Simulated assay, not measured.
Amino acid sequence: MAYADGIEKFVETVNNALPPDFYTYPVEQQRVLYDGLTEALPIPVPDGVRHRDETVTHQGRTARIRIYEPAGRADDAVLFYIRGGGFVIGSLHSHHSLVAELADRTGLAVVALDFGMAPENPFPGPLEDCYAGLCGTLANLSALGLGGIDPQRAVLCGESSGANMAVVLSMMARDRGGPRLRGQAVISPVLDFTRWRHGGEDAPLLSGGEMEFYTACYCPEAAQAEHTYVSPLLGGAFDGLPPAYVVGCEMDSLCVDAEKYAALLRENGTPVTYVREKGMVHAPVRARRVSEPAAEFFARYCAAVAELAGRGTRP
């Protein structure tokens, strides 16, 4: 396997800003360094995209959200984006330009779901925060300035641990009789945490030690890693889920999770498109300004999201 054009430079840039052993640093320092990637890999917010922060409540749980609207909303679907970061690092700031660009390319309103992070807020805290954000938003669209949006045309999006939560939220919505989702679009999902309780293989930008640390933070009790809502590949039910677009990256140790998930959806009658991105490392969404293949990957992703929502992307 070889890096796609520009990806080696991307890996070097990330490693310079976020050293490979960063997960051994105090958690607050990890979070500062991770948010600093926005300076190491600056990407401007597209012109005309507006955003605002809100809070919503569902069944007594309050959740933070950030709403993005493109210059001229083109359709009545809505996207929900859940960031990566191993449930431990990341923020609305760390993925701000990414979510804004998703809104711009699709012409759709996008809601970034925020959540309390581990280890302070372990499983199921982040999931319940995101589920409250999803349900609370769809139940209060007009009050949030999103009048005209169809609550049955929601698509869940996310990368890495955010892709894990997008998958699990799809299951929770089905199991709890929650929102009827139009689709799910996930990049580099981590769907079996039992592989990482004692370390594992290293890959560019995702080491076994890092995954072991994230697993311990999110699942402080070892048995939690086996829960269906943590590791869906272990005994999860894959029927009745929304149509999916699943991305695996060739040089990512989690590519096997994406492949297995796509196969299980297909076996259970769920429409799914699986894409294996050649020469790409784990969740390469930040590489879209330093790698032409990464930019093309993100353009394909946005087009697939728009298709799941029922519309085409802007040129």
Rank of each mutant, 00 (worst) to 15 (best):
L127K: 04
R52G: 14
G147P: 03
K260C: 09
L134W: 04
R52Y: 12
M117Y: 00
F213D: 08
A304F: 02
V272K: 12
E28M: 11
L241W: 05
H51T: 14
A103M: 05
S188T: 05
P179V: 10
E120W: 03
G279I: 06
E54F: 06
A263M: 10
S160K: 10
T62K: 15
E212I: 00
V49S: 09
E201H: 08
D75L: 00
L102S: 02
A173Q: 07
A112W: 00
G133M: 09
P19W: 05
I89C: 08
I7D: 10
P232V: 04
T106I: 05
G116Y: 01
D192V: 08
L108K: 02
Q59V: 06
E12F: 00
V168R: 02
M172G: 00
G158P: 03
Y23R: 11
Y301D: 02
M280D: 03
E159W: 01
L308G: 09
E159P: 01
E128G: 00
T273W: 00
H198G: 04
V272T: 14
E120A: 14
A166V: 02
I149W: 03
A222M: 04
R288K: 13
D47H: 05
H51G: 01
V78Q: 11
R31Y: 04
P119A: 12
M172E: 07
L33Y: 09
F87T: 06
A309N: 05
S207K: 07
F213A: 14
Y218C: 06
F22S: 15
R276L: 13
E8N: 12
L108I: 01
G6A: 12
P204G: 10
L191F: 02
G200L: 07
A304D: 11
A2G: 01
I149H: 15
R195G: 03
G86S: 13
V56S: 07
G162R: 11
I89T: 14
A63E: 13
M251R: 14
V230W: 06
V190R: 07
T270R: 08
A63N: 13
L308F: 07
G158Y: 02
F87W: 15
K278R: 15
Q184M: 13
R289W: 02
D150Q: 04
D150E: 05
F22K: 10
F238G: 12
A100H: 06
P242H: 04
A173F: 03
H95A: 14
A263T: 09
A4H: 10
R105H: 04
Y23W: 15
P42C: 09
W196A: 10
V168A: 04
Q184K: 06
A263E: 14
L98E: 11
E221R: 15
G48P: 09
A139N: 14
V186F: 01
T313R: 13
H282R: 11
A237M: 01
